[in-house]
Structures are given as structure tokens and as C-alpha cells.
């Protein structure tokens, strides 16, 4: 399968979730607006919350797809699961970053 075909399929796959993606982007915009007055470094709990969110996402992802964690067996399965966890943790961190900074 070519890169072009993979991109097309991903675009079609994302179609039902555009509203969710838009909502996630909106949440980021709100977080950055609310946190615009803060300029300090990020507070430590943000990392812990992001890690917890990533771990939770990875653990429940199989169940959300009518599957089970015990069926995650191949390297590709694990890579996909880690990808889900890392992406969720990164997004959570991005969301918390403007809100959980120390005020300057």
C-alpha cells in the first residue's frame, strides 16, 4: 500500500471523528488562552497526570475496540498500543502545560 493510499484511508477513517478532533483542538485553544498570563515552568503533577492519562488510554484501548488486552501480542500490536499511550500523554501534557505553569 502506497503512502498516498494510507493517507487517503486515514482521512476517510478520521471523518466520523472530526467533531472530536475539533473539540480537542478547541480545548487546547481554551487552555492556552486561559494560561496566557502564566510564564513559569510547568508544575510536576502535570507530568504525573499526563502519564496516568496515557497509561489509562493504552489499557482501555483494546476494550474500546471489542477486544482485550490479552489479545495484544505481536510487536505491531504493542507498538500501536504504545503509540496510543504516548499520544494521549503528549496531548494531556500539552493541555495542562499552560494551565499548570507557575505564575510569573
Amino acid at each position: 500500500m502506497s503512502l498516498q493510499q494510507i493517507l487517503v484511508v486515514l482521512a476517510y477513517s478520521a471523518k466520523p471523528y472530526w467533531w472530536l478532533i475539533a473539540l480537542a483542538m478547541l480545548a487546547l485553544a481554551v487552555a492556552f488562552t486561559l494560561g496566557s498570563i502564566r510564564r513559569g515552568s510547568i508544575k510536576r503533577p502535570a507530568y504525573a497526570i499526563a502519564a496516568a492519562a496515557g497509561l489509562t488510554a493504552a489499557l482501555i484501548a483494546p476494550a474500546l475496540t471489542h477486544s482485550s488486552l490479552s489479545y495484544v501480542v505481536t510487536p505491531t500490536d504493542w507498538l500501536a498500543l504504545v503509540g496510543i499511550g504516548v499520544s494521549t500523554a503528549f496531548y494531556t501534557l500539552l493541555l495542562l502545560w499552560p494551565l499548570l505553569r507557575r505564575e510569573s
Binding site: M1, V8, V9, A11, Y12, S13, K15, P62, T65, H66, S67, Y71, V72, V73, T74, P75, T76, D77, L79, A80, L81
Partner: peptide, 29 residues
């Protein structure tokens, strides 16, 4: 095999996700 990272003889959760979530969008494309 279309994907070098998927063994065509191995049972996989990722393949299940493809079947359940991505095959229909691919079909519509």
C-alpha cells in the same frame, strides 16, 4: 502482504482494529 510490519500468518489485535475500524473507510474511499 501489503504491510511489512504485519505478519500475514499471525493473529493480531492491530489487524482486528483494521477490520473493525478502518476497512469500512478504506472501502468507501
Amino acid at each position: 502482504p501489503s504491510f511489512p510490519f504485519i505478519d500475514p500468518t499471525e493473529e493480531s489485535w492491530a489487524v482486528w482494529v483494521m477490520k473493525e475500524k478502518m476497512l469500512q473507510p478504506a472501502y468507501y474511499a
